[in-house]
Write a protein that binds this DNA or RNA. Structure first.
Lengths: 131, 131
DNA sequence: TATTGTTATACTCTATAACTATA
DNA sequence: TATAGTTATAGAGTATAACAATA
């Protein structure tokens, strides 16, 4: 059962060498998938504190991957939108991660891959329910 | 496929609330399983640097869970051995982790659990091979 | 020369607390 | 009062570089 620990390390390593750090990639992933998300909501989605997210967004904004846009209705919030450059960079990062994933899972059959994904998604879905 | 990220977080959280930190638990796990292992070998097994291991062993020794013992043949090395207290604490920690794991996987059937473990072990085994 | 354990130091990631401006 | 974004600060965890003792 301790295999999990090893697997965790694998994936952290795989994510790590994409030029983009894991946390930045994750943030960009959410912003690309949910344009207009606020920083607070994004922090909740990422499971980190709002304060920690600031540096990540600063980095993404400095790289011109993301813009902070004012929202008409509520002047407190700043909606996060991916730029064209950001979307391109994200697509490239996804491709890289995909490559590593494929290599890592190359010795599993398609059926096994599907099984694995199904099982992990089941675990993930139950996440919120467990008290 | 992004389910992995979520799952990683789950397991880190699960490991984290055992009173013992994840890295200390992992170290104790290896020492209990391979009594007499040297610090350098243990660091290699854990995938961290020798320097970082010192604090962990200091902590385990302060808690009387582990002893550093001189080795007759080579006066540079210090063999790590679990104490009776350490072995008891380890067994209890394992039980705690097991409980959380069971809870987390409670909605999977036995067959599914076996499948999952088999798949993850396959990934783990290939780890060293990938270049 | 190489290796073991160690210290010192710096960097990354994250959390907590406090602040501001809005609501 | 409550919330969004921010700053400052501190704590883990890890890595690198250097050192003394030993091989």
């Amino acid at each position: 059962k301790r295999a999990y620990v090893i697997v965790q390390k694998d994936f952290r390593a795989v994510m790590g060498d994409g030029g983009m750090s894991g946390r930045v990639f994750s943030a960009l992933s959410f912003i690309a998938g949910m344009p207009g998300i606020t920083q607070s909501d994004l922090a909740r989605n990422l499971g980190i504190e709002r304060s920690g997210l600031v540096a990540i967004i600063d980095e993404l904004e400095a790289a011109k991957f993301v813009r902070r846009l004012a929202v008409p209705g509520d002047r407190r919030v700043q909606a996060l939108h991916p730029t064209a450059i950001g979307e391109k960079a994200y697509a490239e990062a996804v491709a890289k991660v995909q490559l590593h994933e494929d290599r890592l899972l190359s010795f599993l059959s398609d059926t096994e891959k599907k099984q694995l994904v199904k099982l992990l998604q089941k675990i993930r879905k139950s996440e919120g329910e467990a008290k």
